[in-house]
Every structure is written in structure tokens, then in C-alpha cells.
Simulated assay, not measured.
Amino acid sequence: MTNENETVAMPDMTQTHPLDPLWSLSLMSVRADALDTALELGLFSQLLRPQTAATLAECTQLDEAALQALLDVLWSMGLLLRRRCHSRVPCRYGFELAGSMIRWLNPESPEYCGDSLRFRLHSMRRFGAQLPQLLRQGSMAPEAAGQSSWAQAAQSQIWQEQGAATAGLAVQAVRQLKELDGPRRFLDMGGGPGRVAIALAQDQPLWQGVVFDQPETAAVAGQAIARAGLSDRVRAQGGDMEQTPLGGGYDVIWCSSVLHFCADVPKMLARLYEALAPGGYLLAAHAELPDDRELAARILPYYLPLRMRGRTLWRQGELAVMMRQAGFGRLHETMLESYPLAPACLVSGRREAA
């Protein structure tokens, strides 16, 4: 029963409501669906030049009113530019793919990321639907996908994500290392389709390298290396990263989001240390569980499926501690804000010269 003397709480009209972050979740879902739909229908390739909803509806045979509403949402997301048309019809706008998005959303661009964006959205939603069951029954089984599935992923979404961010970050990180003039050797550990190794070889024309991954994925990398005309300097090697000999004498090892999948991280770090030449560097880029809540909010949703599968997401600073225990010196930590999907911490360490 309501007390007649009760007063209604009056919200502060100058502040957002405490429930706003929760209300925003449903709106984020709609924005994700809007992007997914536009990619599925190939709308962005139609918007490389300005189009009204009417002209776009005519060439795509979509409903004009519904298309107008979708284009407005995509504009509000910053994906499209909107310009008023010179028309007697009020509020008639032309839409065009935003210049900052052309390289990522134009299917003809070598840096296109549409397949990756759709894959991540669908995979995260499939996982989210399993959460109640997982909390009742326990953690998920380890990844059931075979080598063929991983190799297929390497050809599309992983290739796109490496091109969008990882390869550039790796090149930039290597450029900052000291005492690496002249011919050198590098290892791209767990390198997937090899786009990072290709970028490193192109940036360092005197270097030779190896991409190491599962056999079928390494075959994908080998094909990409050949297409890039780098087979004389870069090769792909397949095997089990925790068992197969990695070779030695490397001046740089790039290891990105690989250690999460190792059964024994300290042992793997020891293997990488031994694979380095004296004076060589390990660059290990991985997510960590931060103490800062806002940073954690950007990282933890993406890594929730990994943790549910029993994989490790160590606390902030723990990777540096493990690397020090493995013998690495000159440790340095850098937060990679533009790492694909969620920020990662790049820990660099050196095997000191004899």
C-alpha cells in the first residue's frame, strides 16, 4: 500500500540517471545489429558516393522507410556522413560512408574488417546465450574447433584484425628496440595468418623470420607470405607450441595473445627465453585483469568466454613477474589502447648479452 505522505524522488535534470549504463546495454545491442545488417546487405559498398534513402532503396529493393531509419542510426554511430540535399522535399538527406571508415568498411579495401566484425558479434552472442547454463553446470569445455576451423578463421577475421591493428603495433614496438641494426632474425609465435610477420619483414628489409602456429594455420601463413613475395626471407612452421622445437638465435620474438592458451606459462616463457639470441627481446602482448574498474569494463567482457573455458587471465603485472622469473631483464610495460577488441599490455623483456 502506498503511503499518501510519501514523496516522489525527483531526479537531477542536469545529470544522467544511475540506470543509464544499464539502459544503454539494450541500445548498444541495437547498434550492433544495425552494423551487422548493413554489412550483411552490403550497404557500405553502395555508399561510397552520396545516396538518399530513396535512391538506395531503389537499387537494393529494400523498403525506403525502414532503410531511412537504419541509415539515420548508422549516421548517429559516426559510420556515415549526412548532408542535406538540394531538394524541395523537407529533411531529405544524402548519406555517404564516412572517410575515416572507408578503409575498414569498404569490401574492396585491403584493410576491410567487415568479416571480423560480424564474426566477433555472432560468436560473443552465442556465448552470452550460454551463460545461465554455464553458471549452473560449470566451465565450458576447452575449444572444440579443430585445426581446419582455426585455419579458416586465420584466413578471414584474424587476418583482418591483424591488418587493422596488431601488425602496426608490432612494427612500432620493434622500431623502439635498441641495438638491432643490420641483419636479424625474428619469430612470430602463434602468428596465425602471418600478417604481423609480413609487416615486420617489409619494415625491416634485412631481417629474416619464422611464423609458428598449428600446421594448417601455418599453411595459411605460408600462402600469404608467398603472395607478399617474401618466401625468401620468411617461412611458416607448423607444430605444437609447447612441444615442437622452436629453433633458436632469434633477435626478436613477437608473442601476441598466445600465452593465455598455454597449460604452463612459466615453462613456455622459459622456452621462449632459450630461443632468443643473447641480447634478444621478447615482446609479449596480452590482456591482464586490471585494478582500474573502467579499464576492466573494456577488457573483461571479451575475455569472459576464455575464462569460462578454464584459460588464464592473470592479474595486472603478473606477466612481468613471470618473465623476470624466467630470466628476462630490462622489463618494460606499455598499455596498447588500440589492440583489437580490448586493450592489452605489452611486456618487453631482454635476454641479456653474455
Rank of each mutant, 00 (worst) to 15 (best):
G191D: 07
G191Y: 08
G191H: 09
G191N: 03
G191R: 09
G192P: 01
G192I: 09
P193H: 09
G194P: 02
G194V: 06
G194I: 09
R195P: 02
R195M: 13
R195D: 13
V196Q: 11
V196M: 11
V196S: 14
A197W: 01
I198P: 04
I198V: 13
A201P: 01
Q202P: 02
Q202F: 00
D203S: 15
D203K: 11
Q204G: 04
Q204R: 13
L206F: 06
W207R: 06
W207A: 13
W207Q: 09
W207M: 09
Q208S: 12
Q208K: 12
Q208T: 12
V210K: 07
V210H: 02
V211S: 04
V211T: 04
F212V: 00
F212P: 00
P215G: 07
E216T: 03
E216D: 14
T217N: 06
T217D: 06
T217E: 04
A218P: 00
A218Y: 00
A218C: 06
A219G: 08
V220I: 15
V220C: 09
V220Y: 09
A221I: 08
A221Y: 01
G222D: 14
G222K: 05
G222T: 12
Q223K: 12
Q223H: 11
A224I: 00
A224N: 15
I225W: 02
I225G: 02
I225V: 15
A226G: 03
A226M: 08
R227K: 15
R227A: 15
A228L: 06
A228M: 06
A228P: 03
A228C: 07
G229Y: 12
S231R: 01
D232N: 15
D232Y: 01
R233I: 11
R233E: 08
V234L: 15
R235K: 14
A236D: 00
A236Y: 01
A236K: 04
G238H: 01
G238M: 05
G238W: 01
D240L: 05
D240P: 02
D240V: 00
D240F: 00
M241H: 07
T244G: 01
T244S: 11
T244I: 04
P245G: 05
G248T: 11
G249S: 05
G249V: 02
Y250V: 02
Y250R: 03
Y250A: 06
Y250M: 03
D251R: 04
V252Y: 14
V252T: 12
V252D: 14
V252K: 01
V252Q: 08
I253E: 12
I253W: 09
I253C: 13
I253D: 12
W254H: 14
C255I: 07
C255V: 05
S256Q: 15
S256G: 12
S256Y: 06
S256L: 10
S256F: 05
L259H: 03
L259D: 01
L259M: 14
H260W: 04
H260T: 12
H260K: 10
C262T: 08
C262Y: 00
C262Q: 11
A263I: 01
A263V: 08
D264C: 08
D264L: 10
V265D: 07
P266L: 12
P266G: 14
P266H: 08
M268A: 15
L269R: 04
L269M: 14
L269V: 10
L269F: 07
A270Q: 15
A270K: 10
A270E: 15
A270H: 13
R271S: 14
R271H: 11
L272N: 09
E274T: 14
E274M: 08
A275K: 04
L276H: 10
A277E: 13
